[in-house]
Design a protein around this nucleic acid. Structure first.
Lengths: 160, 160
DNA sequence: ATTTTATTAATGACATGTTATTCAATAACA
DNA sequence: TGTTATTGAATAACATGTCATTAATAAAAT
C-alpha cells in the first residue's frame, strides 16, 4: 500500500476510532456525536436556521432536518418559525439543551485528554495544517474554519 | 476552538470530503466506498471468512454480513461454506468481481492524484506517522497496519 | 400584477455504522 | 459421553449520511 492510500485509510481509521470513543463517552448523556455537535454549534453560534446550522456542521451535508428532529423530540432544541420569513425555522437550545451542553463539554475534555496522551502539541498542529490544506474550500473545511474562528471555550457566563 | 478540538473536526472533515469525492468517482461503477474496500481486500488477501475480512476492514467493526450481502447480490463476491468448519463461510471474488477491482484501482489512482495535488509527499508521510500513533492498537489501526504490510499495487499479473 | 425562479424545510428512500440477539456448529471440559 | 461455553454468521433495530423530491414561501422577472 502506498503512502497516499495509507493516508486515506488512516484518516478513516482515526475518524472511526475517535467516534467510537466519543460514542462510549456520550452514551450516558443519551446523545450521539452528531447530536452533540449540533448542540455545541447552537450554543456557540446562537439561534440559527436549518441551512445556517448545516453550513456550520462537519458531520453532515445538506439541511440537518432529521438530526434536529431527534433533539427537538428530546426537548433539547426548540423550533420557532422566523417572523420575517415564514419558510425559515429558528433553532435554539432549551434550558435542558444548555445543561446538556455543559456535560458535553466535560465529555469532550475527557476525549481531548485521551488524544493529548497519544499525540504531542506539535504533532497536532502539524496534522491540522495539512488536513486544513486538503479540506479548505470544501463545505466541511469551511465549516471548520468558521467555527475555529470563534472561541470554543466560553469566556463569559451564558447570557441567560 | 483549541487545537485538539480542531484536529477532531479536521479529521472528520477530511474523511467526509474524501468519501464524497470517492463516492462520485465510484458512482459509475455501481459500488460504494465500503464495497470497494471489501473488493480490494478480497483481491489482495485472497479468500477470507467473514470475521477475517472484518479484521482487515477499516470501514466497519464487527462482521460485515450486510456489506457482503450487497456484493453477493451484485455477483461480485461468492460465498462458499468452509469444508473443515461448517460455521464459516469463505468469501472470494467472482470473475466479475476481479474485473470490477481493476476499475476500482483506476478510480483510486484518480483520487490519489487529487490528494497529491493538494499535499506534498512529506506532508502525507508526517500525517500518516501521527495518525498511526493515534490508532495503533485499536481495531481500525490494526487493520491498516496489516494491509499496509502487503503490496497494494499488484506486482504480477493475476493468477487467473 | 402575474408568472417564473429560487430558497427553505420536510420527507422518503437506500446504503451504512453500530449494537444486540439468535441459531448452528465447534470446542472445552467434567 | 454429555454438558457447557465459545465461535461464526445472519438478522433485527436504530440512528446516520447521502440524495431526490415535494410543498410552501419569497424573490425576481416580465
Amino acid at each position: 500500500m502506498n503512502s497516499v492510500e495509507e493516508l486515506r485509510f488512516l484518516v478513516l481509521a482515526a475518524q472511526r476510532e475517535g467516534n467510537r470513543i466519543l460514542l462510549d463517552l456520550l452514551r450516558p448523556l443519551g446523545v450521539s456525536p452528531s447530536q452533540a455537535e449540533v448542540i455545541r454549534v447552537l450554543a456557540d453560534h446562537g439561534p440559527l436556521s436549518l441551512v445556517d446550522l448545516g453550513a456550520l456542521l462537519v458531520c453532515e451535508t445538506g439541511s440537518p432536518s432529521r438530526l434536529v428532529d431527534g433533539l427537538v423530540a428530546a426537548s433539547l432544541v426548540e423550533r420557532m418559525p422566523a417572523v420575517d420569513d415564514r419558510r425559515r425555522v429558528i433553532l435554539s437550545l432549551t434550558d435542558a439543551g444548555r445543561e446538556k451542553e455543559v456535560s458535553i463539554r466535560e465529555v469532550e475534555a475527557t476525549l481531548h485528554g485521551f488524544i493529548e496522551q497519544s499525540l504531542t502539541t506539535a504533532e497536532i498542529a502539524s496534522v491540522n495544517a495539512t488536513l486544513h490544506k486538503f479540506v479548505s474550500g470544501r463545505p466541511a473545511g469551511i465549516a471548520v474554519a468558521k467555527r475555529s474562528a470563534t472561541p470554543g471555550q466560553r469566556r463569559y457566563a451564558p447570557s441567560t
